[in-house]
Design a binder for these strands. Structure first.
Lengths: 133, 133
DNA sequence: GACGACTTACTACACCTGTAGTACTACGGT
DNA sequence: ACCGTAGTACTACAGGTGTAGTAAGTCGTC
């Protein structure tokens, strides 16, 4: 399965952009970042991208003189990884406990409750035919 | 509100021990860590504790020549903070979406489903009362 | 009163992150 | 063929983390 992706905010920000765009040049990443109020020098962005690549998190191909970056880890993978961390640390790995916690706490409003009841109904209906990416 | 607690695995490990014990000396923390297969030198533990203190995450009082450490951030707080991070990054801050995701994915077994339905039932009951309170 | 044990403080070092300047290179236009 | 511009690579530096050795202080014991 997956290693533990321990990513900083900025790294996550870069990945987010790559995920959203599919691929992007350093310049495009920089542009998006600026629009998100992360005012970084273009060279800073390049540096971070290089470092992420050195770690094997992303990769690039050259098109002319530009590098087009692409993530090697999927959003799903990182999401799962980060969620696992929380689940493991605070709920002993019990996802159900995490969900309970979330439902018990504020943050889940009546609409959500309805939506979830719906979801759970489906869930309890299906037995164990489950398979997706 | 709360700042973003960006904590490493080791830091989280130290906090876990302080949370569980309430307070602890460096030696006690070290002992617990060793029992958890984190074989670190006692001085390493002390160093980390000092640094956490410098950051304001924990504090200590002296008893004789020993320092007794205690966390200044609650488990709840850190949990919420880490959960927020995931929620914000991957679900646009929508806790309901996170819960849906968790329920849809594997990891929530039939027992959980039942438990959650129970929980949601209570939830929707009380929602009618303090709906717009 | 000196010694040793225990404990914290200081120092060290390698590696990662955030941040960015400067150097180098290659393409495109005139 | 040249030069500017765009774009990457290299270098730099401060601050954080993981890791730990060594120094220094203190308290009990003989």
């Amino acid at each position: 399965m997956g290693e533990t992706h321990q990513l900083s905010d900025l790294q996550l920000g870069l990945l987010r952009i790559l995920w959203d765009r599919g691929e992007a040049t350093a310049l495009e990443v920089h542009t998006d970042l600026v629009e998100q109020d992360r005012g970084l020098a273009p060279t800073t962005v390049s540096t971070m991208l290089s470092r992420l690549e050195k770690k094997g998190t992303i990769t690039h191909r050259a098109e002319g003189r530009q590098f087009i970056y692409r993530s090697l880890v999927s959003e799903v993978e990182v999401r799962r990884s980060m969620l696992s961390r929380v689940t493991d640390y605070f709920f002993g790995g019990d996802v159900g406990a995490l969900v309970s916690h979330l439902v018990e706490g504020k943050g889940v409003d009546p609409d959500d409750v309805a939506r979830l009841q719906q979801l759970l109904a489906e869930r309890s209906g299906e037995a164990e035919e489950d398979d997706d990416a």
